[in-house]
Design a protein around this nucleic acid. Sequence first.
DNA 1: TATTGTTATACTCTATAACTATA
DNA 2: TATAGTTATAGAGTATAACAATA
Lengths: 139, 139
Amino acid sequence: MSRPRLGYLLKHANLRLSELVGAALAPYGIDGREFAVLALLDSPVPMSQLDAARRLGIDRTTMVAMVDALERKDLVRRRPHPDDRRKNVVEPTERGHRTLGGARIAVDAAEEEFLSALSGGDAGLLRDVLERLVPPPAG
Amino acid sequence: MSRPRLGYLLKHANLRLSELVGAALAPYGIDGREFAVLALLDSPVPMSQLDAARRLGIDRTTMVAMVDALERKDLVRRRPHPDDRRKNVVEPTERGHRTLGGARIAVDAAEEEFLSALSGGDAGLLRDVLERLVPPPAG
DNA sequence: TATTGTTATACTCTATAACTATA
DNA sequence: TATAGTTATAGAGTATAACAATA
């Protein structure tokens, strides 16, 4: 039979990784997308919703819903930006930090499982190659 | 800054490839998903809708809609399976074959553009590595 | 005038449940 | 009883348009 298309491979690689990450994060009450936002907001420089949205390549209206969900779970907090009152500074709560601690380890383990069919060298190479294919985050 | 997560890289690699393939296929009046179905149905062995769905890892109800769309465009034809009247044999029409001829070249070019930041060796390696990460199609 | 956050809304993709017809 | 196709429907996930507050 013919080889699978690149699009098929990327789509299904994505699906499989999403399943593994989703299962790994379930005990923490968040999904992969919420984890990505939470991890990004755990930053030394204060980040507005728009900053975060640009970094993740999603729309600012989507970010509103993500931050809403994280705030409902008491994992992040909105506060007004001191110098520009149009902006929110969004930052993890104490609970958010604790959650993130465990969640990072869980996600690392899920990625490791996803890559377990590869040698360490090939796994690293996959990362390097993908980074060269993907436009760097804006901001 | 920290390195992007594997999930981010796979998602955005997918998005970029989809855009390129979508643009390449626009002149043929089909999108990437329809192309995948049409290319799969262009097979020496007759394929039912369920066969095709399993191969692409999508639901059979999704396949109904895809075949509907391709049939409306006169690119495929349903006919009853000679030995099992529960099944449809779905096969490209003459127009489907002609469309596929050009579309394959367009998609190959789009993939090449997607991979253009990589050496030929790295591009081949990406394929090999992804194939090892993705479960092979059922059937 | 432009930017940030927000809301309402709509669109795409996909799956689940229930039905029909065949086996 | 199980399978193939179909329909109706619902759920993610996402974006566009329009608005208020602020710059």
